[in-house]
Write a protein that binds this DNA or RNA. Structure first.
Lengths: 217, 217
DNA sequence: CACGTGCTAGCACGACTGTGCCAGCAAAGG
DNA sequence: CCTTTGCTGGCACAGTCGTGCTAGCACGTG
């Protein structure tokens, strides 16, 4: 992951490699969103990022590495955005604050979702992408699990927690899909209302004698 | 659509155009499933279908037409399979019999789902695909609507019907997504159980004075 | 200053792409 | 029989693809 600091001895290193990689990954995202995964080539990405192909290939020697890093960075960005969510004191509001990040409600998360779909579509060709997809999926499932456990006041490994987690995860991902295929500027309250309703339903079935702490970070 | 019978006068017409088109579309599906949308080219499809490029292009002059027809046929196949579903007398069982076709539980519906994802990923490049995607989506939404209306015994335009339809649609599509990203031979009962549970929940809230007829065809 | 290295810019190659075009074939109509 | 027509098989072209390779530039370090 890091392996950068051990290079200190004597090197020019003018540019910030990580910033460059991020810039290229973002160019990949833009092309996926605007022109589809089929339009992603080393040349189109280099042009979109404003660098020449040689520079791109200095950082990503092969196209596969470029795509894999782009997918990984997308997952990382989403993860850190969720972890940085300020949690309201109210349990239901805290749950919603977390879950709303799993749906394409803003332009940024819309792009992430679109990249995720492209990742699905290309995973037969680039098997590494399947692993990244699974990792992203598992992280979302874990988040849903913690939210559900906190809402219904039962442990993570409780049978009902597991079932409700799967249901909530499916609901959120299904809504995400439907939000993605509607115009970006269309109304989204119908989806957020459904999530809020499900949160309320889960709270309503809360075990009376349960630990009050959410502990969903 | 048809415009075939008006050709009677005098033509050889040795092959069945529609069968040929279907064979090519199925080749497209296989390549999407096995190698990803990026591997779909006129040459790869022709080889997969066992014809030469010239023959493919005699039926589909351009690659876009090939992809659009493949997507349309996928939607049509799914639609006719659902319409051909025998409906059990029991309301809940009938609902499940319909809804199970919306999830990739068998190899065939798995392929359809995979094609649908590829369709999503490529729709920025081929705008016609976006229309097909919307049409498929609307058909599924309609089916969910009829199922929900029958289950809760309220009219289609009832407010609660609309809300529950959206929820059921999201649940089913989310489960479909999760079933797709798990191995084809993995257990699927967890997903079908969730659908059955939701059907039971909807029936439980059924209005007491409602028309008993499902009328979901 | 000169040296070494990170980086850029670009050429070159072979493979592959979609599509235009045409020669040849088999079969149905006259 | 011959002609017409649907279809096959394939060549060709221009463009794009990923990637190997190299010459030159800019800059941190000695």
């Amino acid at each position: 992951m890091v392996a950068r600091a051990c290079y200190l001895p004597a090197v020019p290193r003018t540019i910030d490699r990580d910033a460059r990689k991020a810039k290229l990954a973002e160019a990949v995202w833009r092309i996926i969103v605007e022109r589809g995964i089929g339009a992603v080539s080393v040349r189109s990405v280099a042009e979109e990022a404003g660098v020449v192909v040689g520079s791109l290939r200095h950082v990503f020697p092969t196209r596969a590495e470029l795509l894999e890093f782009s997918a990984e960075l997308m997952v990382a960005r989403a993860t850190e955005r969720i972890q940085a969510t300020p949690l309201p004191a109210d349990l239901g509001e805290a749950a919603f604050a977390l879950l709303r990040h799993l749906m394409p409600l803003e332009q940024e998360s819309r792009a992430e979702m679109e990249v995720y779909i492209a990742l699905l579509a290309e995973s037969p060709a680039l098997p590494r992408l399947a692993a990244i997809r699974d990792e992203a999926n598992q992280q979302i499932a874990q988040l849903c699990g913690q939210v559900v456990a906190a809402l219904i006041g039962r442990p993570l490994d409780d049978e009902r927690t597991v079932t409700e987690t799967r249901r909530l995860h499916a609901l959120v991902d299904g809504l995400a899909l439907h939000l993605l295929v509607q115009p970006a500027d269309a109304d989204t309250t119908w989806a957020t209302d459904l999530v809020r309703a499900d949160i309320a339903r889960l709270i309503a079935t809360r075990s009376p004698d349960s630990q009050p702490a959410p502990s969903t970070d």
